[in-house]
Amino acid sequence: MSAVLSAPPRVGALFLASPKAMISSAVALILILSALCAPWIAPHDPFALGSFSLMDSELPPVWSEGGDPRFLLGTDTQGRDVLSAILYGMRVSLLVGFAAVAISAAVGTLFGLVAGFRGGWLDAVLMRLADVILSFPTILIALLVSGIARGLLPDTRQEDYAVLVLILAIAINEWTQYARTVRGQTLVEASLDYVKAARLSGLGDGRILARHILPNVLSPVIVIATINLALAVLAEATLSFLGVGMPATQPSLGTLIRIGNENLFSGVWWVVVFPALTLVLLVLSVNLFGDWLRDALNPRSE
């Protein structure tokens, strides 16, 4: 994100000139803000166990026959307000997504730069470490992290560490993608004459990496990061599907889709359709914005 802040002023002008960028960022921003403000704008608190009643379960959206004005988008099988559950669920999903992407992109880029630039044993160790990590399905890493978390924090409640487990599990798995891609790109850049010249002129490695190589490897990092934000949210949903995700008491968007998915045949469509639409909208807007950002940041475009 620091790249955005330090980007040349022309990015601002480009932004104002692109309807795609403005619309997608506006949608993403609205979704993110409404998730952040969920406690104030959501009509109900879906995480408060005593606040909803089974008697209200499976009410359809308010415009359908039998809808209840208290529940705009209807209720789920527990009687939870779907709209509130989506707003709160998005908070959880975004927290997991952003944190996992931030950690994995930072660690992966750093490792990739160092491995590609320094080469030698450091490169071998980092890349083989990546091999080891990539050999494990995310679900297994999630199981391991959650097993260790349980061991280290035996008295804490499940909800407290579930988020942490998910973030770590996804980040541990995904930094390798950045590392390998950045490494490949760094190898190419480092072999170019201007970098060789900079090296010969006695410029420090850190400066060469930051000034010359980092900007040039950033484009694939942003491509992967935007895809990975979506991926992280989906990975969370998949982990829930396989039984190691957010608990049903604190559902994320993914958990809502998983639970809704069980009702796919039963006609209670609003339980799965609205969370899924929200997820798609969120991922789509973030991706479109990421696309635009990549083009705008690319020093070689124009």
Binding site: A230, L234, T238, F241, N261, L279, V280, L284, N287, D291
Partner: peptide, 15 residues
């Protein structure tokens, strides 16, 4: 193509 593919990857595999 991009929009369709994005919708595609935004849906969990099990769905």
């Amino acid at each position: 193509v991009q929009a369709v593919s994005l919708v595609g990857v935004s849906t969990p595999t099990f769905v």
